[in-house]
Amino acid sequence: MIKPRLAIFIIIVAVQLSVPIYLIANREYVLKTGHAFHFRTEPVDPYDAFRGRYVYLDFAIENDINEAVKKEYGGKVWEALDSDRARTMYVSLKKDARGFAIVATIGEIPPGYADYIKVDVKRNEYSDRVLVDIPFNRFYMDEFDAPKAEHAYNTVNRDQKMEAYAVVYVKKGETVLYDLMLDNMPIREYLTKYSSEPLKPRK
């Protein structure tokens, strides 16, 4: 009885390994063949942010998407969207003069080219803003660095003179959040550089 059971077991092992390997391969494929976009970030309300092993990111493009969604449904957002069930929408991207990602088009079906992301939108019960769920809003860090990184992220984002953005590889709706840049430095480098002195806004 062992022989067929062993064969089945080997198949099970292969299936179990295939899921994580598929996840890895998929992300590596996007990193290799996708296009990198810079998404300008915004400060996160510290009361909303989950303080754990990742930095929660907010993006400026959420405002653009908000406007685009409202335009798409011609002021009938209330009828078109639900407050409980998210609707997936496809946002194709282009770059502005300074190289940051902005919305080109938005729609309920994917566009014919590769530079688009998938977002979940919901109607907000209490305001006329649309709730946009960006699929790359978590940046995982070392458990000791994550709180410091979160603090640095908010400090830089509140500072008018410094720039903060996320580098995201995009291919046909698949996205990989590659790095978080604070003041034109990868966040880990930024933390190393300023770890000796307390973080404060620059003059």
Binding site: L23, I24, R27, P135, N137, F139
Partner: peptide, 9 residues
């Protein structure tokens, strides 16, 4: 793997 690639959970 989700952590390594910042895969949105």
């Amino acid at each position: 793997i989700s952590q390594t690639y910042n895969i949105y959970g």
